[in-house]
Write a protein that binds this DNA or RNA. Structure first.
Lengths: 167, 167
DNA sequence: TTAAACTTTCAAAAATAATTGAAAGTTTGT
DNA sequence: ACAAACTTTCAATTATTTTTGAAAGTTTAA
């Protein structure tokens, strides 16, 4: 396989993976492109490479910056903006989990808390509802915390310990 | 908040959370409904509760069973089928991660392997591509393994240890 | 202050994904 | 073998999400 083909395959794959996990395909593709680029890329180049419109590029770059995983750069003497991706994968994982936790998990937890604390009457149906949603609340809270704490420890003893013990 | 309202809120929330993570909304809603139900539910009832068509209910129940998180049940004397959800949350997490790994992560890893092993020429561009995709391969492989191993240990010393140390 | 070189916005259009419903398929009892 | 009671399938429709592109906005340089 030659470079151009591999590059394209990677961008497509990363885009597909994004879609499957609820991330807009183009957003994931732009991210892929920037991750494998050894130097800052202009919006123009992104549009050209991915064959997308200026508006699309602009909006998705903005989204990536909001996620904190893509940065704007300026080149001396150049008027236009360039972009680079966070290339440290541990850092990337931390940012993605933080953001998804904040935007999706935390709000869901809030609702879970609300619905699990209603006054259940005597019926088995209502009792089961309260019981199950309470368990779900605890579980999601625990998972959310674990992910948060785990990503804090980049590449250190913990990860290695866990891997070792599990092998 | 009264029961009916809470129930509805939970089903809606679970559906929305599903969407955000790449799971069809109705599929997540059916799952939510079954999780909080203390007894098996018929397709008829699901259609009624969620106001969806028979075809929709049938297809999404099939998908949930393919995931291994919803089971068919038969009631003595009844011709029609009933459904129940896996209610053990550790078990649920194991099944979901296994399935997503198998369907999405593993195929992506295969491609990552392919593209990261091309023969790069001397250019910084190609070298960086190989370097970055190799790192990504290692990272995703590690994360996939970790998730797999972690979910194997349901609620045992490891999880507790990790939690404790991180707090 | 003007205009060139850019970026952002957002209503409309296009693409994609989910849903419907009726026909086809299956199973069970008589 | 028949038919009642169900479930599944899938082409067509509908809903949702994404993308476009042109107008509006911004910044910089002269």
């Amino acid at each position: 396989m030659e470079f151009k083909e591999a590059k394209n395959k990677f961008v497509q794959t990363w885009g597909a993976l994004g879609s499957q996990w609820g991330i807009n395909k183009t957003m994931a593709q732009i991210h892929a492109l920037l991750m494998i680029s050894n130097e800052p890329v202009s919006m123009e180049d992104i549009m050209e490479e991915l064959q997308i419109s200026r508006g699309n590029a602009s909006m998705n770059l903005r989204a990536l910056m909001d996620w904190g995983i893509v940065y704007k750069e300026f080149k001396a003497g150049e008027r236009k903006e360039f972009f680079t991706a966070e290339k440290d994968l541990d850092e990337l994982a931390v940012k993605i989990s933080r953001e998804r936790s904040k935007r999706e998990i935390k709000p869901a937890l809030k609702i879970l808390k609300e619905v699990s604390t209603i006054e259940a009457n005597e019926s088995a149906e209502e009792k089961h509802f309260v019981d199950q949603t309470s368990k779900l609340y605890d579980f999601v809270l625990k998972a959310d915390n674990m992910l948060d704490k785990m990503t804090e420890f980049n590449e250190n003893w913990l990860g290695k310990l866990v891997i070792k013990m599990m092998k």
